[in-house]
């Protein structure tokens, strides 16, 4: 087991508002980690900094002991919480794009998943429903053999029936040495696949623990604990 990601005193301010507040975090390889917190807790801000879409105000962020940059982007596969692809393009065009830019992209795996979900590669994204677009994005992200998958709300926009399939896609398509960081507030749906959870509130880590430890120490599910911790 090796350290993939390390944040030290990581902070992000937007004007006078602090979205991420001196976070210290270490993600090891071979884990599925749930990044859990209420809306506006700083989950997406943290994820965007990991992917180089936001610059930290202070603190450090390292992926495999290197700052976020070209090298980290080769090994981190990122699913944003909204559609970010060119809507005029066909799925096959986007697969070619990913194949060209990401050395770890497995084209055969992508086409296989598309077939299983009955999505035609020749369809343009703009003709698809919101849920189908999200499935396509997830397929693209999970078709990479990355070291770290960062998934921001991967099941928020799809129907409950498709959630099981998506979770199955996530579970069956990552290397054992890789880690997955999943941000969501639909905890009950993903609880069974998580190894660890990080509770985040007001930009600070409230709790970081393994799921087994929570169950043993608290005698309750992560979902129940989350509802208690973040009770309004």
């Amino acid at each position: 087991m090796s350290t993939l990601l390390e944040c030290r005193e990581l902070t992000k301010n937007f004007g006078d508002k602090t979205a991420v507040d001196h976070i210290n975090l270490c993600i090891e390889s071979g884990h599925i980690i749930g990044l859990l917190g209420p809306n506006g807790s700083g989950k997406t801000t943290l994820i965007k900094m990991i992917n180089g879409l936001l610059t930290p105000s202070s603190g450090t962020l390292y992926f495999k002991e290197n700052p976020i940059g070209v090298e980290s982007k080769k090994h981190i596969s990122y699913l944003p919480d909204h559609t970010y692809l060119n809507m005029n393009e066909r799925v096959s065009d986007i697969i070619d794009f990913f194949t060209d830019f990401y050395e770890d992209f497995d084209k055969a795996r992508a086409y296989d998943m598309l077939e299983k979900l009955s999505i035609s590669p020749s369809d343009r994204l703009k003709t698809m429903s919101k849920g189908t677009k999200e499935k396509v994005q997830l397929i693209l992200v999970m078709s990479r053999r990355a070291d770290l998958y960062v998934l921001d709300e991967p099941i928020a926009g799809v129907d409950p029936a498709a959630r099981d399939y998506i979770l199955n896609v996530i579970l069956t398509n990552y290397e054992p040495s890789a880690s997955i960081l999943i941000s969501t507030h639909l905890i009950a749906d993903i609880e069974n696949i998580l190894d660890e959870v990080i509770f985040i509130q007001n930009g600070q880590i409230r709790l970081s623990s393994s799921v087994d430890d929570i169950r043993a120490a608290e005698g309750k599910s992560v979902d129940t604990l989350f509802r208690e911790v973040f009770k309004c």
Partner: peptide, 13 residues
């Protein structure tokens, strides 16, 4: 904008 998410996560300088 949204498509910038893809542009800035490509492994290029």
């Amino acid at each position: 904008s949204d498509r910038g998410y893809l542009t800035h996560t490509l492994p290029v300088s």
